[in-house]
Amino acid sequence: MALVIVETGKGSKVLEIAREAGVQSGTIFLGKGTASRNIIDRLGLSDRRKELVIMIAETEIATKAMDNISRIFKFEKPNHGIGYMEDVSNVWGTTSCTVGYRDLDEGDEDVFNAIYTIVNRGLADEVIDAAQGAGSMGGTVIHARGSGIAERQKVFSITIEPEKEIVMILSPREKTDGIVNAIREKMKIDEPGKGIIYVTNVAKTYGILRE
């Protein structure tokens, strides 16, 4: 699975480039970057509105698409956007790709995790504060939207009510446990109804600079 975060209005261009590389479909979500001001020059995540583009394709096609997107959008430059790829074990609802899972080797360099925290609307800033206190460089907030109380969205196979927020944080693997524990403690995640956290392995990143 390939994910790209760019300024609002550029998601369609991302999908256009991806389709040229063989990706058959993708989804654009609206979000907001939350990087602290002192690292905006290093990350493509500011306080401005963002679009999150999610695409699923075979590894070879997804890699080609991400390489092209990174080159055209100049992800190597600050504030031009970021992208990353996650391992997907199974895919349902599409016949356009077959995806195999691989474990990340302990010796892999620059390995990141993606931390997803789902909380009630209005609490995303508290999640970000807790994460930054544990060493996070920032994240992206996705607002689940619906026109009626019965309408729901599904993100990563999890049903999200319209009043929820999803906080996405990219974390170097060595910082992940500390960030997750900080969020769990501040948000009381282990109590019923307080939220959900899940963590995935990131196979490759674009536009992320290590300190």
Results as ranks from 00 to 15, higher is better:
residue 41 D to F: 08
residue 164 K to C: 08
residue 73 F to Y: 04
residue 108 D to R: 12
residue 176 T to G: 02
residue 115 I to F: 09
residue 21 A to D: 04
residue 80 H to L: 01
residue 17 I to L: 13
residue 15 L to S: 02
residue 69 I to S: 02
residue 183 I to C: 02
residue 206 Y to T: 08
residue 11 G to I: 01
residue 48 R to A: 13
residue 193 G to M: 06
residue 99 V to G: 07
residue 162 P to Y: 03
residue 75 F to R: 02
residue 106 E to K: 10
residue 154 K to S: 15
residue 98 T to F: 14
residue 28 I to V: 10
residue 89 S to A: 14
residue 69 I to Q: 03
residue 20 E to G: 15
residue 101 Y to C: 09
residue 9 G to P: 05
residue 112 F to C: 13
residue 148 G to S: 15
residue 189 I to E: 06
residue 124 A to G: 08
residue 151 E to P: 03
residue 28 I to Q: 04
residue 147 S to T: 12
residue 59 T to N: 12
residue 137 M to T: 03
residue 104 L to S: 14
residue 77 K to G: 02
residue 82 I to T: 01
residue 183 I to H: 00
residue 132 Q to E: 15
residue 210 R to V: 14
residue 104 L to T: 13
residue 102 R to I: 13
residue 28 I to P: 00
residue 180 V to G: 00
residue 86 E to C: 07
residue 187 M to R: 01
residue 133 G to D: 07
residue 35 A to C: 11
residue 187 M to V: 06
residue 112 F to K: 13
residue 208 I to M: 13
residue 50 K to M: 11
residue 88 V to Y: 02
residue 162 P to S: 04
residue 173 R to M: 08
residue 135 G to M: 04
residue 167 V to I: 12
residue 37 R to W: 13
residue 183 I to Y: 02
residue 63 T to N: 12
residue 160 I to R: 01
residue 20 E to Q: 14
residue 196 I to H: 14
residue 64 K to N: 15
residue 34 T to V: 08
residue 132 Q to M: 14
residue 15 L to R: 03
residue 15 L to I: 02
residue 20 E to P: 03
residue 110 D to M: 12
residue 106 E to Y: 11
residue 146 G to Y: 03
residue 173 R to W: 06
residue 120 N to H: 14
residue 178 G to M: 01
residue 142 I to D: 01
residue 112 F to D: 11
residue 132 Q to R: 15
residue 96 S to H: 10
residue 8 T to P: 03
residue 105 D to W: 08
residue 5 I to T: 07
residue 88 V to N: 05
residue 137 M to Y: 06
residue 138 G to N: 03
residue 90 N to T: 13
residue 201 N to C: 08
residue 178 G to R: 06
residue 4 V to N: 04
residue 160 I to G: 05
residue 49 R to C: 10
residue 196 I to C: 11
residue 169 I to F: 06
residue 138 G to F: 01
residue 79 N to V: 08
residue 169 I to V: 13
residue 167 V to C: 05
residue 167 V to S: 02
residue 96 S to N: 11
residue 188 K to E: 15
residue 133 G to K: 00
residue 146 G to W: 03
residue 146 G to F: 05
residue 170 L to R: 00
residue 151 E to N: 11
residue 55 M to F: 07
residue 134 A to D: 01
residue 145 R to Q: 08
residue 50 K to D: 06
residue 26 G to V: 05
residue 169 I to G: 04
residue 57 A to H: 04
residue 195 G to S: 07
residue 131 A to N: 00
residue 173 R to Y: 08
residue 46 S to Q: 04
residue 202 V to G: 07
residue 16 E to H: 07
residue 83 G to E: 01
residue 87 D to K: 08
residue 175 K to S: 08
residue 155 V to S: 10
residue 203 A to E: 14
residue 83 G to C: 01
residue 144 A to H: 02
residue 77 K to M: 09
residue 204 K to M: 10
residue 199 V to E: 08
residue 126 E to H: 09
residue 158 I to H: 13
residue 77 K to L: 15
residue 162 P to D: 05
residue 177 D to M: 14
residue 158 I to R: 14
residue 168 M to L: 15
residue 131 A to E: 00
residue 194 K to P: 00
residue 196 I to S: 12
residue 161 E to P: 00
residue 171 S to I: 02
residue 200 T to D: 13
residue 170 L to P: 05
residue 110 D to W: 12
residue 50 K to I: 06
residue 89 S to F: 12
residue 191 E to S: 12
residue 56 I to F: 12
residue 74 K to A: 12
residue 75 F to N: 04
residue 207 G to H: 09
residue 73 F to R: 04
residue 28 I to S: 05
residue 176 T to H: 04
residue 122 G to C: 08
residue 125 D to I: 06
residue 103 D to R: 14
